[in-house]
Amino acid sequence: MPIPASIQQFIDRQADAAPTSYGDLRAVVFNGTLKRSPEPSQTDGLLAISRGLLERLGVQVDVVRIVDHVIPPGVWPDMTTQGYDRDDFPRIYRELVEPADIILIAGPIWLGDQSSQTRTVIERLYAYSGEVNAAGQWSYYGKVGGVVTTGNEDGGKHVSAQVLYALQHIGLTIPPQSDAYWNGEAGPGDSYSDPGSGGPENAWTTRNTVFMTWNILHYARMLKDAGGVPTYGNSTHDWDLSHPDHPNPEYR
């Protein structure tokens, strides 16, 4: 969705004065809307601010609208091993998540909570959290997470709390103020991008979305330059917590 001209001009000014380069970074954005493409997503409207800034700075941004793919629920890396005929998530993980420096979870609020699509992709990300890097750290160490939420009911902070807890639990780094949301009036009111909603003109939401984007950029830059999270004291190579009598891996 197009960004209002005033916001685009602000993004351009900030990008032109950026303190360093970010062109070697990659981001994957999961949009948990319940609308299949090409139907417009309200979440895309708010995401456009963050995505616009990232792309203006040269970050490669890959957007996955979850509902457009066959992603079965579950906490196994490949759900075809559990009887499903098809599972698109292993390919998405290897091609987009594994090389990403930033993982951004976005979606709408339904009944005061995150959508079923958002929760499904968090569970599937969780399925890969048992993999380790060469240093023995969990697979998401060195990646940065954030969350964007839209809705016309309350629940923005609740969703942020759930998503950010899940991301840090599986190993992502969560910067300060790494969430942004917009809530319209309670009841059958306007959504973010509806004409007259006030969403794109809401300076508080726009400011927080810009802050969130810069914070995940700063932390992604720092971690990339440092070679990831320091490995001392957090390597699985130093521990043997296997339980032969219990087949579920520890991380589940």
Rank of each mutant, 00 (worst) to 15 (best):
M1I: 08
A5W: 04
A5P: 09
Q8G: 07
Q9V: 08
R13D: 15
R13T: 14
R13W: 07
A17V: 06
T20R: 12
T20D: 15
S21T: 14
A27G: 05
N31W: 04
G32H: 03
P38D: 09
E39Q: 10
P40E: 09
S41Y: 01
G45F: 07
L46W: 08
L47C: 14
A48E: 01
A48S: 15
I49H: 03
I49N: 10
R51F: 10
L54K: 02
R56K: 11
R56L: 10
G58W: 07
V59S: 14
V63E: 14
V64R: 00
I66R: 00
V67I: 14
D68N: 06
V70F: 07
G74P: 09
T80E: 02
T81N: 12
T81F: 09
T81D: 13
Q82P: 13
G83R: 05
Y84R: 09
D85T: 11
R86F: 11
D88C: 10
D88G: 08
P90K: 04
E95K: 04
L96Y: 11
E98H: 13
E98F: 13
I102C: 07
I103L: 15
L104P: 11
G107K: 05
G107I: 04
W110R: 12
S115P: 04
S116L: 10
Q117A: 12
Q117H: 12
T120A: 07
V121K: 01
V121C: 00
E123S: 12
E123Q: 13
S129R: 00
N133G: 14
A134N: 06
A135P: 08
Q137W: 05
Q137H: 08
W138S: 12
Y140K: 02
K143L: 11
V144L: 00
V144T: 00
T149P: 02
T149C: 13
T150N: 11
T150Q: 10
T150K: 02
G151P: 01
G151L: 00
G156L: 02
G156R: 00
L164K: 01
L164S: 01
A166V: 01
Q168H: 06
L172Y: 00
P175Q: 03
P175H: 01
A186V: 07
G187L: 02
G189E: 02
G189D: 03
G189A: 05
D194P: 02
G196K: 01
E201N: 06
T206F: 04
R207D: 15
N208R: 07
T209Q: 09
T213I: 08
W214F: 14
I216G: 06
I216P: 02
Y219W: 14
Y219C: 15
A220R: 00
M222C: 15
L223P: 08
G227S: 14
G228A: 06
V229T: 13
Y232G: 14
N234V: 12
T236F: 15
H237A: 13
D238A: 15
W239R: 10
D240K: 05
L241G: 10
P244V: 04
D245K: 08
P247F: 05
P247M: 03
P249F: 01
E250V: 11
Y251N: 11
